[in-house]
Amino acid sequence: MSILEGLKFYAGDTAIHKLDPRVKLLVSTIMLIIVVMYAEVWMLTILITVQAVMAYIAKIVRRWLKTIRGSMPLAALVFGLNAIFFISTDTHATLQETLYYSATLAYRLVLFLSSFSIFFLTTTPEEIGLTLTSWRVPYPYTFAFISAIRFTPIIAQELKDIMDAQRARGVELDRGGPLERAKKLIPILVPLLANALRRAYELAEAMEVKCFGAAKKRTSLRELKMSAKDYVVLLMSLLLFGLAVYYKLLPILFQG
């Protein structure tokens, strides 16, 4: 549940909030690429430290930590599945190596989620929409995407309400074996899906009433404009990214 909280925008007046959303998205994407490129713990630790500094500047440390906490079950699953896979197959790796590799995979997953959490926590759905529109993504797709983001916290709240309603009927969600627990998800997921479909239908009607799609070319009240600060952050990020790529490719170049 707390992982979904990481997709919710929290208003603020910090330097991170004021950054151009395209720059923030680029920084998050760069972090993602580095996470994919590097499995070394030292680099992953540098990245999480950078993220922690960004979260501190944006005054969202508590919410960012919530995302990290929320991603732990998923990370534990990745760790467990990898460890089981490597141990059960003949990979010639020692137990220590297997555990280390599984741990770094889980660490990378946490980093991946937390880097995008900073972007979503400090960027309004409107800014995300403007970013996609500036990249010439057709508006109906942009609208669908920002609606999904906007409705995520609502669905999370609804999930809580449905769980409460079912628990009040005697459903003990945290009891029983895995199969029994999976069966108990039906009373949760069916109302959630029914409510989501009803909301989608209502949203479609509301959009039609507001003449959605009537004009082929849309105008926007606010346009994105890069400031000097944005360019500085952009250049620094690209520079650090270049260094990370160079450092990774260095051994390969020397081998060649």
Binding site: E158, D161, D164, A165, Q166, P187, V190, P191, A194, R198
Partner: peptide, 10 residues
Amino acid sequence: MFQNTDDMFF
């Protein structure tokens, strides 16, 4: 009995 009774039905 909760406000949104739809949360109960499945």
